[in-house]
Design a protein around this nucleic acid. Structure first.
Length: 455
RNA sequence: GGCCCUAUCGUCUAACGGUUAGGACGAGAGCUUUUCAAGCUCUAAACCCGGGUUCGACUCCCGGUAGGGUCACCA
């Protein structure tokens, strides 16, 4: 098989979801694996429903996913050609102009119908094997509303042939369209490409992914801070696998190992949880500064409006490793900056009870104060920029000593310390906090906690 | 309903006649740990059912069941 040509032929009548782009991804991977051409054709024959605003995101997403077309077409540009062939079919009697009674608004008084020869049509699907359809019950189906308005079935057949498409890779929902399209091909004496019908991607209700039932446009995932590598990786693995146990493949690796014969026949469910986990994997491969750039690329969360937080850039970079181990999307990371990790940038408000939360309150008030005071000097002695581990080495002994003295556990020291620094019931460990905040800020926050305990 | 397609853990999947049915996500437990997150270890979890074929079926065939797709002057 030389000169493989595959195509992605979306119609700009709505925002495209993961299922739509999955066919693009497979068609692309297939062509590139074979060293062939991948083309994009905008199917805008339905003038009434095709909208430019649906077209722009298609190219945006493909660019985001780094899926480049070798050639680009627009179906409406081929109108002359369509008209010519339509006339030919009508002239030789293969098709005819038929008088109609309009059933719905927009229906025509006359349309062009294909004279259906009937019988069985068989083709060998690359993925599913032999499929036979009895076309008799299709009747004389409509191929155009007028000479200038071909309908999908007619236009695809002509365009695929004119563009030299060798492999039609599309969703399984097209299986039942194939036979009638082949009928048109035969009438036009055009070659029949190879067909590969991909299993459908289903939503959590086990229905075909669809805008109407809430499938997200891919742009939404992009805007939520999903990495294109992750999206591509996840989508490629829906209904396909490389035949080994690797789960994370880069774009180039996908191209290299893509094998259409390994495509699944059964449909798969789109699982956001898994997508996020794949995304986390790719996020973690980024350098801290690159990671930060992505985080700041996410629009400021609405919860942050009016807070006027300005980030200390030095601390911001130090916080990145924490975000890396916690966030599954950049949006999530962005939200942590103004949420659970915002104390790095703005001084926390402390609650006396939470400060003493680690034991019986009467005794602990005094004890907590002593514990915090005992930490002041050792922390002052630390140099700025030391690692969390170094901080731990100098503070742990104190916690251990207190544990002996009060039998309250290390928590009697470490909890108030961590809370004084973060103001959060849950946060990274106190050593990490000190290493990021620096000694001066840490001491200042501990003093404030001590002051509160003295009230 | 007609026609067509499909069928392995909850989910994505491996297996291409002989395996203790493997991996990943998720879940649970433990370790670590002041807390959270991460990490590490472990556990639970599947061959839709019934007939064949075969020395032997998740794998092949048939039937059933279930699910999905499609039946437009949309693509």
């Amino acid at each position: 098989m030389t000169n493989v040509v595959s195509r992605f032929a979306p119609s700009p009548t709505g925002l495209l979801h993961a299922g739509n782009y999955r066919t693009a991804v497979f068609a692309y991977l297939f062509a590139k694996h074979k060293g062939g051409k991948f083309i994009i054709r905008i199917e805008d024959t339905d003038q009434a429903r095709s909208k430019p605003e649906y077209e722009t995101p298609i190219f945006e997403v493909l660019k985001w996913l780094n899926i480049q077309a070798d050639e680009q077409y627009r179906q409406s540009e081929h109108r002359t050609r369509h008209r010519e062939l339509l006339k030919k079919l009508v002239a030789d009697g293969t098709a005819y102009i038929s008088k109609e009674t309009p059933q719905a608004p927009g229906d025509r008084e006359e349309v062009i119908r294909f004279r259906n020869p009937g019988g069985a049509v068989t083709f060998t699907d690359v993925i599913r094997g032999e499929i036979t359809t009895d076309v008799t019950d299709l009747g004389d189906f409509i191929i155009a509303r007028s000479l200038d308005e071909p309908v999908f079935h007619f236009a695809v057949v002509v365009d695929d042939a004119d563009e030299g498409v060798t492999h039609v890779i599309r969703g399984g929902d097209h299986i039942s369209n194939t036979a009638r399209q082949m009928l048109i091909q035969r009438a036009l004496a055009l070659p029949t490409p190879l067909y590969a019908h991909l299993p459908l991607i289903l939503d959590s209700n086990h229905k075909k992914l669809s805008k109407r039932t809430g499938a997200k446009a891919l742009t939404e995932y992009r805007d939520a801070g999903i990495l294109p590598e992750a999206m591509l990786n996840y989508i490629a693995f829906l209904g396909w696998n490389p035949g080994n146990e690797r789960e994370y493949l880069s774009r180039d690796e996908l191209i290299k190992s893509f094998d259409i014969s390994r495509v699944q026949k059964g449909s798969a469910l789109f699982d956001e949880v898994k997508l996020f986990s794949v995304n986390q994997h790719w996020m973690r491969k980024l350098s801290d500064s690159n990671f930060l750039a992505h985080v700041l690329d996410v629009p400021r969360p609405t919860s942050d409006v009016g807070r006027g937080t300005s980030y200390n850039s030095e601390i911001l970079l130090k916080v990145m490793p924490l975000l890396k181990e916690r966030a599954k999307t950049f949006k999530e990371a962005r939200e942590m900056l103004v949420g659970e990790l915002s104390f790095f940038f703005t001084e926390p408000k402390l609650d006396k009870n939470l400060l003493m939360a680690n034991g019986p309150k009467e005794r602990l008030g005094g004890m907590t104060k002593l514990a915090l005071e005992s930490l002041l000097e050792p922390i002052k002695d630390l140099k700025n920029g030391v690692s969390a581990n170094t901080v731990k080495e100098s503070i742990m002994p104190i916690a251990d000593a207190e544990e002996q003295k009060w039998k309250g556990g290390k928590g009697a020291v470490l909890w108030p310390l961590r809370y004084a620094l973060s103001g959060q019931e849950r946060s990274p460990d106190p050593f990490t906090l000190i290493s990021i905040l620096g000694t001066e800020e840490s001491v200042s926050r501990i003093r404030k906690a001590i002051a509160i305990l003295g009230e």
